[in-house]
Design a protein around this nucleic acid. Structure first.
Lengths: 229, 229
DNA sequence: TCAAAAGTGTTGCATCTACACCCATGG
DNA sequence: CCATGGGTGTAGATGCAACACTTTTGA
């Protein structure tokens, strides 16, 4: 039995909440056409690696960012989760033991898109940001895993206001609010949102304003400091 | 690499919050004295078993109760978690591959003590209920696992009022309140507690009162119905 | 009649929601 | 000077915490 980690990497581009996916053209075998496989980044756990370590490694292979928000949220162990035909065909192209059962530990991660640049080196396939609300069919049970991650993320966004993990280093309150609105899928009141988020005392106003916008430039803020939970 | 599940089974006896543990005398090897090993119930995942299935099986082997509250809460994968000496000695007494690394998926469970009766058949060792606030040193990282479980349980007790899962079928509001007080480790106001818990509309008052108590007998309640989350 | 826990409402305070107008900037 | 989003305060409603006395039963 194998163990893997899969990472649901969320990013935010001012309009959409996105998930980082790996797209790979599956070589056509015999008469069948090549299929496009889309999957979460993940990998088998190495012999001397912790779970968190494996998740970090997977992230490092995707991007060179450090200090990214990363959290284990659930473990998926259906005995059949990697057994269906198209997934098996695909696994055979790169796994030593494609037929083995795999239990996977799900992590979700929040990255600042402004800093993100894909690392070409690793992950043979191409990485792609895809709107979380418009996901294609993914490999294995990865659609389920993303839904689960999103669910947990929403709860933690409300409870811990971790939204700024998805925004640039310096951001405006409107950006933060838009993010919340998209993740939670509902409109929020501007004045109330600002009161609430400022009361949490996690944001530091900067002596700096937005530049080059065609309206009144907004105050920029910065995330104060890691909070202990 | 192996995968196991470990179950943190909580029970409540009107005074204390307890955890069900397995106690086994570890045969002394050579000159050393026999040691007492205390551990969470758990087992390796079988080839065709889901994680939830394995957790249920472990529970079934402890007790004949069905329909018990059971929830996955975290997965523990430190590469060294089963490697220390005393744990290795013990593992050698019953594991086919004691040296193998084990990643374990933690479940916690709530059982009604009134219905509980230990199943002698399985788990060679003896089962024991131990106060969660006075745990001895447990095998592996089981102390950490219990702490984690307790933490999650507290949050879910507040959020979902799952307390009645630990009480007899019929219970009084005072019993429920005492349970909350012990789990959360703080005193609660009687009137407010009753208002709150009744507002949730999960309890059905019965046409029945406590019997044989030397004070005004209390109204009995029953948990209404499984709520969907 | 005593002891022991059951049961019950109200008030003040804090929090949340709903809501509309002026401001600063770039074009 | 116009368009665009930025920024701000309040009143009313709601929710929550604090608090004390009467009731019922068994002994």
């Amino acid at each position: 039995m194998d163990i893997s980690v899969d990472c649901v990497v969320f990013g935010f581009d001012e309009k959409k909440l996105k998930v980082l996916l790996i797209e790979q053209r599956q070589p056509g075998k015999d008469k069948t056409l090549p299929r496009l496989q889309t999957a979460l980044p993940g990998d088998l756990l190495k012999e001397n690696e912790s779970l968190d370590g494996a998740a970090k490694r997977v992230l490092r292979e995707l991007t060179s960012l450090k200090g990214i928000y990363l959290k284990q949220f659930h473990t998926f162990g259906d005995p059949m989760r990697v057994k269906n035909l198209k997934d098996q065909d695909w696994l055979r192209t790169f796994r030593a033991h494609p037929e083995r059962r795999v239990v996977t530990v799900g992590y979700y991660s929040l990255v600042k898109l402004e800093d993100y640049s894909p690392k070409a080196s690793s992950f043979a396939g191409k990485t792609k940001w895809i709107d979380v609300y418009e996901l294609p069919e993914l490999a294995f049970d990865h659609n389920v895993i993303v839904e689960y991650a999103l669910d947990v993320f929403r709860h933690e966004l409300i409870a811990d206001n971790i939204g700024f993990e998805l925004l640039p280093e310096k951001f405006t309150l409107s950006q933060l609010q838009h993010l919340h609105e998209i993740v939670l899928n509902k409109k929020l009141d501007k004045r109330n949102f600002r009161k609430n988020v400022l009361k949490l005392d996690q944001l530091k106003p900067l002596n700096e304003k937005q530049q080059g916008v065609l309206h009144k430039p907004a105050q920029l803020f910065q995330f104060k400091t890691k909070k202990k939970s």
